[in-house]
Structures are given as C-alpha cells and as structure tokens.
Design a protein around this nucleic acid. Structure first.
Lengths: 111, 111
DNA sequence: GGCCTTCATCGTATTTTTGCGATTAATAAA
DNA sequence: TTTATTAATCGCAAAAATACGATGAAGGCC
C-alpha cells in the first residue's frame, strides 16, 4: 500500500479488523487453544507444541498481547501467558452484535 | 516468511484463521456493513462509500468472495454482491463454539 | 562468581497485502 | 455503430507480515 488508509475508517471497524487480524494466523489460533486448554499458564510449552521456531512463537505471542487478547507476566526466568477473557468477551460480543443487527435486515437474497 | 507453515496446522485452525483474515481489514468490514444495510445488492455504490479507489475496492470484494463470505453475480454492465449468510453463520458458529468450549475450562486467572 | 535455562529482541530474507493508475471487457445508450 | 458506463484485471510500488538464526538479558543453580 502506498499509504495505510486504516485511519479513514470508523473506530468500530478498525477495532473489529484488529481483532480479526490477531486471529488471522493459524499459529495464533493454535496458541489461544493451547493457552485455554491448560490449567497452568504455559509458556515455553507453546514452543514445543507449535511447528515454529522459538523466536517466531515469541513474535506471535507479542502480537496477541498487543491486540489485548492475552496477558503476560514474567515469572523468574520464564514468561507466563494466559487469555484475557474480558477483552475476548468484549470482542466476541462486539462481533456478534454487529452481525446480528446486520442479519435482522435479511433482505438481500438476490445473488 | 521463508516458507508458509500454514499446512502444519489443523484444518479447523486454518479455516478459522482464513475467516478472520477476511475480516482483518477495516475496508472489508465496511464493505460487509454496507452490503448488509442495503435492500438491493449494491456494487459501485460501495466505491462511493469507501475512501478507496475502484480497483482497490474490487480487490477487497474479490477477497471476500474467495473467502466465501459474499456472493457476486454480473447484472448487465454492473456487478451485484451480497452477503452469503449461510457461510457466515457457519463461521460464526464455528468461532463461537470454539471459544465457548475453551471458556468452560476457565482455570487460568494467573496473570 | 560462573553457568545454564528461558525467553525477548535484533537483523535479515522472503512472501503477502495493500493501494493505485491504466487498461480491458462487457453492456447499455445514443 | 459509436460512445459512455461499470467493473474486473494487469502491472507496479510500497508496506506489512512471516519466519528464522543469532544475540542479549534476566533469573535460577552449582
């Protein structure tokens, strides 16, 4: 892109897009699955599970964290990540309400 | 990326990621909103609404179509697009069920 | 102190995405 | 038939995403 036109869209559209972007890579979906399936906060465990290098996983974790979907704290020599359920619920609600309201006007079956 | 590692993940993860990718740009979210808000199948109307060039909008429409989220038919000199609600519901359900099942094990509040 | 483990960050390469202008194809209108 | 309208596609440029190895930092362990 010559210039990112992201700013030309509404905040809601940007928020939803940013959330979707966080989920737009199978590795990040897999990370969320792994985090949710564990009782303890895994960290290096994720690297073992995923078919990616440690630095790559770390990068994906960073993106998820920046998107607000996970929290991370340092625990001694290792890091602890877990899902930020509040943020996640917020996005889920936003996502559903958006398209539920859209669906109400179920007018166009033209194509 | 050196090599796309997409194939190394499960089909479900890939599907969800592909769906999220389709929504990962504010322009595409805006397009879906516009399509859903109209009783008739708009097309060139979208170009007027979005702050993007015609060719760029056409490209976003193509991506949404390839993701299966919208249908498109040619109507004379113009094209007609509308939301594929079946596909959309399918993805929405998949998305919700995934994270509902994850949420059940609401164990980790450690960070 | 020195050493090992764990993870973040840096630098770099490659691919993909985004964006636009120009062109093309198809149809409607004159 | 000529012209105008509509939208897809091509070609290109710039930016972002993806991936990895190497390096660094921070804390535990001897």
């Amino acid at each position: 892109m010559a210039i990112a036109k992201t700013a030309a869209f509404s905040q809601k559209e940007q928020d939803l897009a940013a959330f979707a972007k966080a989920l737009s890579h199978p590795a990040r979906v897999a990370i969320l699955k792994t985090l949710a399936g564990k009782t303890e906060c895994v960290c290096g465990h994720i690297v073992d599970v995923l078919p990616l290098a440690q630095s790559t996983v770390s990068q994906h974790l960073k993106e998820l964290k920046e998107a607000g979907l996970i929290n991370g704290t340092v625990e001694g020599p290792r890091s602890c990540y877990c899902i930020n359920w509040e943020a996640f619920e917020k996005f889920k609600t936003e996502f559903n309400s958006l398209f539920d309201t859209l669906k109400v006007k179920d007018s166009n079956n033209c194509c």
